[in-house]
């Protein structure tokens, strides 16, 4: 019925139409940025008076953009891996554990999301200055892991809550060890949750600018910090070019993943 794609009837058309509209809404600014990156207007006029590749030339001529992108990717990857692992353990504890103050603990682990980032940024920066972590990659990763953790915990706990534990128990009854049951049954079942967690926590770091401004040092500039300076000071289409290249990279990665999956399933 409602969850049967083939038996939805008219609802299917309505839902599909709405989904298409939302997809278009999500694509609109991305497409727009890509178009602007080829536009010759310095002031983001649209439609542009002409088309050009000069923003890409400027971008590629400046190695600091690529350095910044690599630094961002490195920090975001480390923060995401840490946040997902720590968040996975924490989620099991929060959902499966029977102890008092569970909800308080959950609330505590989500606070990094509530506090305006600038307050956390100043607090953690002052702290890092005192213990010597300011301006280091490790300090950067730690602060971003703290910010990313709620983004890992929320989807994983939601997935775990929806997962029927009796299936895991059944596997154990059938002779699987608890670890096997968890690795083979539970984790695959909540994989969308873990996938969301990985993406959200990666992005929580990748797109983060406020803490990054504080954690930055001359040798540690991330992409959002670079973009922030460039947008505020210049609003240059070079930023659009940089974003477009990332969109292109993401597209390539997605196509490769899709092909890979198809190959596996054959």
């Amino acid at each position: 019925m409602l969850l049967d794609y083939d038996r939805l009837g008219w609802l299917r058309m309505a839902l599909a139409g709405f989904t298409a509209l939302v997809a278009a809404f999500l694509l609109l600014p991305v497409v727009f940025i890509v178009l602007l990156s080829f536009g010759s207007s310095r002031w983001l006029a649209f439609p542009p008076p002409g088309w050009t590749l000069k923003w890409y030339e400027q971008l590629l001529a400046d190695p600091t953009w690529i350095d910044a992108a690599l630094t961002s990717a490195k920090i975001a990857a480390m923060a995401a891996i840490l946040a997902v692992i720590i968040g996975l353990f924490a989620s099991f504890g929060l959902i499966r554990g029977e102890f008092r103050g569970r909800q308080i603990l959950r609330g505590l682990l989500l606070t990094p999301m509530v506090l305006p980032v600038v307050v956390f940024a100043i607090a953690v920066y002052a702290f890092f200055l005192r213990i010597g972590l300011a301006g280091t990659t490790i300090g950067f990763v730690i602060s971003h892991t703290v910010l990313a953790l709620p983004f890992a915990i929320i989807p994983i706990t939601a997935a775990l809550e929806g997962f029927d534990k009796s299936i895991e128990d059944a596997a154990i009854v059938c002779g699987a060890s608890p670890l096997q049951a968890r690795l083979r049954i539970t984790l695959p079942s909540i994989r969308i949750g873990i996938f969301s967690a990985a993406i959200f926590s990666f992005l929580a770091s990748w797109d983060e600018v406020v803490v990054a401004i504080f954690m930055a040092s001359p040798t540690l500039q991330t992409l959002p910090v670079k973009i922030w300076g460039s947008l505020r000071a210049d609003l240059s289409p070079v930023v659009a070019a940089a974003s477009s290249l990332l969109v292109c990279l993401t597209l390539c990665l997605m196509i490769v993943t899709a092909l890979f999956r198809r190959k596996l399933s054959r």
């Binding site: 002052a126 200055l129 005192r130 300011a134 401004i213 504080f214 001359p218």
Partner: peptide
């Protein structure tokens, strides 16, 4: 070269006695 300028960051450095 470092930046962008952030007054909060500047104050935090001076307060902590670790000015970079």
């Amino acid at each position: 070269q470092d930046g962008p300028t952030d007054y909060g960051k500047l104050k935090a450095m001076v307060d902590a006695g670790n000015v970079t």
